[in-house]
Design a protein around this nucleic acid. Structure first.
Lengths: 202, 202
DNA sequence: TGGAATACTAAACACTGTTCATTAAGTTTG
DNA sequence: CAAACTTAATGAACAGTGTTTAGTATTCCA
């Protein structure tokens, strides 16, 4: 029964083609210009065809957002081999800022836009988000256990650090740091991160 | 020459009527359902009329966002009479969280959505944002000067605190804190804020 | 070879923000 | 007072959006 398998494979491949082109379009042209019709033009199918592979636009955006998370996780993983958890945490901070700076559209989709989370049903889980969060959490735990970081509740610490990093980055991405000229933003970001790290250091 | 004055006043009043209804609609029905046509229905004018009082939808959203900032600033000002700057800062943190929790759509418009910032031209300034930021900044300055807060660069401190507060709140609003059940969010938020405050305390 | 399943699409639906020619009302002036 | 000018408001159109559906080819299997 190789035929149904081939069909399934071809179906999967077409889904991935659409996803790949959508992702490229999203990065190249930005969110605003990524409409289902323009995507349809690009892949040379009709707009209705996209609905055979994705339930709606939110689900397509969710799929792109998962791709972005894979890329982000791969980037963060550069820090994984660093034995010292404090140095690792520090490196993760740098990589976080770098990722957001180099892929603002991805960052937006992953952490700011509503669309992908609408695709996710009320109850069910957000695997790619959880994985990243747990990676951070385990590093923080090591930092505390090995006495690099002040003793504090693990969840509070993880939420605090996530919040802080997301805060800096998203204020810049959504243009709410207008009180400082753009050329100062990078310095303010890394300055704040450094400050925050030194406050948490045991 | 009372006629041109009356005309100007009537014009201003109509602008405010539109703005008031738009704001109510935005709060009641949410962003998604606030279209220029549905707003036009509500105020019993045609959609084209709105364009006689606002350049485009972004400018209307910017005006609503300014109203939201006024309300926010009034709320934050509850803390203004508190003499001790550290207590005042603490109170401002509580009020910030409370505002975001009670008016998530306003918060979104003020600090997350792109629309209002698009209405603001590249160069020109964001008065309502600046005012709020400066209020925070002066309180931080007092905290440092009076030895309540660890010695640190004022701008770094202001950006750090803003980032952190915005981070917690916006993660919740945009549903990126799914690793914890909703009933735990408030506790995590105040827990993080407390933790952060205690780290900054001299 | 005929019937069922699949892949795909054109066209329509119900929206959106925005523009513009036209109408109606009010104001000023000869 | 009537004519000319100014302003306010609108209906209709434009160009776009996400989404649904009826219908058409094409492929597969009994």
């Amino acid at each position: 029964m190789g035929i149904t398998e081939r069909k399934e494979r071809e179906r999967q491949e077409k889904r991935e083609l659409i996803l790949r082109e959508a992702t490229q379009m999203f990065l190249q042209e930005g969110y605003e210009k990524t409409s289902l019709r323009s995507l349809a033009d690009r892949i040379e199918y009709s707009a209705a065809t996209i609905y055979l592979y994705f339930k709606d636009k939110n689900e397509l955006f969710f799929a792109i957002h998962e791709q972005a998370f894979d890329y982000f996780f791969a980037k963060l993983s550069i820090a994984a081999p660093i034995a010292n958890p404090w140095d690792r945490l520090q490196k993760m901070g740098d990589l976080y800022i770098e990722f957001a700076h180099q892929n603002p559209e991805f960052y937006d989709l992953m952490f700011i836009m509503s669309q992908p989370m609408v695709a996710l049903a009320e109850d069910c889980d957000w695997d790619c988000g959880f994985r990243t969060f747990n990676f951070l959490k385990s590093t923080i735990q090591e930092c505390i256990e090995q006495g690099y970081m002040k003793k504090m509740d693990l969840d509070i610490a993880a939420v605090s650090i996530t919040s802080f990093m997301h805060g800096v980055v998203s204020l810049v991405i959504r243009k709410r740091l207008k009180m400082y000229p753009p050329e100062q933003h990078r310095a303010l970001m890394s300055g704040s991160v450094e400050q925050m790290m030194s406050l948490m250091r045991a």
